[in-house]
């Protein structure tokens, strides 16, 4: 096999490479947001109302200082979007991690011990997944608002969002891990480990877990897109990140108020970034699923 053929065989399709590059760029930009962003959206002194509602620099009336234009408060959209993107990514990853940890733990327990624990956990999961994540998350947000003061809700918004999204999403991990655990449970190496008297916790974490991790990774990537979308939707509906600390969804919500004044860029720019982000994650997730799940390859 020549080097070229080898590379072509090994490399993922071009769309996946582009998606990976886009995602990597976004993550780097977000990590160094404070250095790259022309201004700090949380620092009121760094922007002024004089600069408000300037269209993107490539349009008539644009200002070279503001590549994507400014919003109604004179904030540079590039900076606002960078910081918003950071919050969206952090909440998305946080929700996926929390859901994966809960789901893997409960899935291992259900699959390893079986019996009544298994039945109860899976029934609870069945009921939870029959409700759409958005509905559950909205309910939690409403309850939080009724129980806590407005300022507390704003301050804890990221945590509330992560928990609300994870509450529904763990079931998918639990189901997959449970099924794989049951298969592994019957294998000789697990039976041998039981015979020599290793504690259950050690068998689950050190012996079974590494063998079920690849499917968890695939679900996590596919779910990341969903989690980012859910967060954006909640923030758009006003039940997510507050305007003082906006995510991409909050920015689109704010921009939505200016659609009819012709200031379309305030909403469309963050929306475009959101769609590109989710699309990139989806392309990678689809690829990983086809690659690591031969059962789905048939389609």
């Amino acid at each position: 096999m020549t080097t070229r053929a080898f590379l072509q065989h090994r490399l993922p399709p071009i769309s996946v490479i582009i998606a990976g590059l886009v995602l990597a760029t976004m993550i780097v930009l977000v990590i160094f947001a404070a250095l790259i962003a022309p201004m700090d959206p949380r620092d009121v002194s760094s922007y002024s109302l004089i600069d408000m509602e300037i269209p993107p620099s490539f349009m008539d009336g644009g200002d070279p200082r503001f590549l994507l234009g400014t919003d109604n408060q004179g904030r540079d959209l590039v900076s606002v979007i960078l910081f918003g993107l950071r919050i969206s990514i952090i909440i998305g990853i946080g929700a996926v991690l929390l859901a994966a940890i809960i789901g893997v733990a409960l899935g291992l327990i259900a699959g390893y011990f079986g019996g009544i624990i298994d039945t109860i956990l899976m029934r609870v999961g069945d009921v939870l997944v029959s409700f759409p994540t958005i509905l559950v998350a909205l309910l939690i947000s409403g309850v939080a608002r009724a129980q806590l003061s407005g300022a507390t809700v704003s301050e804890w918004a990221p945590v509330i969002l992560i928990c609300a999204i994870a509450l529904n999403e763990w079931v998918q991990y639990a189901r997959t891990v449970r099924a794989s655990t049951m298969v592994e449970n019957a294998r000789d190496y697990v039976r041998a480990a039981k015979v020599i008297g290793l504690p259950s916790r050690r068998i689950m974490l050190r012996h079974i877990l590494p063998n079920v991790m690849s499917s968890v990774m695939v679900i996590a990537t596919i779910n990341l897109a969903g989690a980012i979308l859910t967060e954006a939707t909640l923030s758009f509906l006003g039940a997510g990140m507050p305007a003082t600390y906006p995510s991409l969804g909050t920015l689109i919500r704010i921009g939505n108020q200016f659609l009819f004044s012709g200031l379309w860029w305030i909403a469309v720019m963050p929306a475009a970034v959101l769609v590109v982000l989710v699309l990139a994650v989806n392309v990678i997730g689809d690829y990983l699923r086809d690659r690591f799940n031969p059962k789905l390859m048939a389609h």
Binding site: A225, L229, A232, T233, F236, L237, I252, N256, L259, F260, G262, W264, A267, V268, A271, L274, V275, V278, L279, N282, V283, D286
Partner: peptide, 22 residues
């Protein structure tokens, strides 16, 4: 369809409003 899945419902609605209503 991949673009469709990645497009949140509210963004679709927003773009439709922008084009056909505004």
């Amino acid at each position: 369809t991949l673009v469709g899945i990645s497009m949140p419902t509210f963004v679709t609605g927003l773009l439709l409003i922008l084009i056909f209503a505004v």
